[in-house]
Amino acid sequence: MTVRELRATLSAHALVVLVCVFSALPVVWAVSTSFKGPAAIFAPDLVPADPTLDNYRATLATFPVARLVLNTGAVAAAVAALQLLLAVLAAYGLVRFRFRGGPVVLTALAAAIIVPQQCLIVPNYLLAAQMGWIDTYVGLAAPQLAGCALGVLLLHQHVRAFPRSLLDAAQIDGAGHATVLWRIVVPNLRPVLVALAVLFFITSWNEYLWPLLVASGTERATVQVGLQAFQTEQGNDWGRMMAAAVLVTAPVLLAYGLAQRWIVAAFVQGTGR
């Protein structure tokens, strides 16, 4: 490697590391702050001089971390699973059966993706209220299912590219449509479906506006709504605030740390070509 090349590589790494610092700083600083006592909180030390667990003790006493994480995770898992199911069925139906109305359905689903959520919240809230779904898991999850439209669009491409002879062979082997779909098509689209499931889960996990409206009570609150409520209560106790933020972040980051190779690869490969 020439000196010039080495310098280019080093400066490239320097820039990327700088951006990494930018990306990681909020979390790192939150962790640092969460271990600082009231006196040390003003100190700009990254590693607390006198680390304490007081913030965590105090926070855990009033902040229902487990409840929030479970609420959010359960809803996100259910939403992702259902969205995947709806998307698989619809994509298969649109490709496998050529029927009048199919193209219109596809266009309607595609157009729905770009409608801003904020434009729909008033009627959706009214509908959820009418159904008695305010402060329920069903109310939290139901409107999110409309996000399956994106999945239909993505899967449509993959189902269409599915080798026709495999479908024919399965039919001749005696498979009906259900068998073809679940035993031939789905197993062979697994990488795409995994990527889509991850995408759906993250999207639902990060959903904010709708939970804010329908899950303001602590029973059903999601991570974000709960944290925001905690912030309103706690005012300026930044040590506790950061402890709470770290507590709700930890499960996500842990899961991400364990599966990151996989999640990133699902995106890079699943959408790359």
């Binding site: 080798p163 495999l166 024919d168 062979a169 001749i172 082997d173 005696g174 197993p187």
Partner: peptide, 28 residues
């Protein structure tokens, strides 16, 4: 097709990629 009791061999063989040889043959 499934009621006709016919079998077909395809140009690209159309083997199910996610199944073993044994499962491919036994599937029908």
């Amino acid at each position: 097709a499934r009621d006709r009791d016919v079998a077909m061999v395809f140009q690209d063989f159309a083997l199910y990629p996610h199944m073993t040889v044994e499962a491919n043959v036994a599937f029908g």
